[in-house]
Amino acid sequence: MDFVYSHYNYWIAIFLMMVGFYTVISRGNLIKKIIGLNIFQVSVFLLYISIGTVAGGAAPIITQGVTLYSNPLPHVLILTAIVVGVATTALALALVVRIKEAYGTIEEDDIHRQDQTL
């Protein structure tokens, strides 16, 4: 049990990862898929931040009298990944707008049906 409690941040990351992944796979609504994708990406951000923690380490800002710092590199990496995530979401939403204009719907099943009947 101790193992479960002491790694709670990883459990949250895994839970979010699965929630996001399942949403992407199971939902037919294009917007909901994007939401799922975002949750999936955020879980990875949490994973990185967790990795960066050093037990007993202070925030990585040089201060007098502190010798042990957390690792700042994962934070920096994740900043990049967040930017990438924002760009992906923006592009995905733009595509959904265009799809709505072209098909009049954002439900995957309806889009599929319209393509079949052509």
Binding site: K33, L37, T88, L91, A92, I99, D115
Partner: peptide, 15 residues
């Protein structure tokens, strides 16, 4: 269909 295939690729590619 170019739009839907780009969307499909976006989801798969991002995953």
């Amino acid at each position: 269909q170019a739009l839907t295939s780009a969307y499909q690729y976006l989801i798969m590619g991002t995953l």
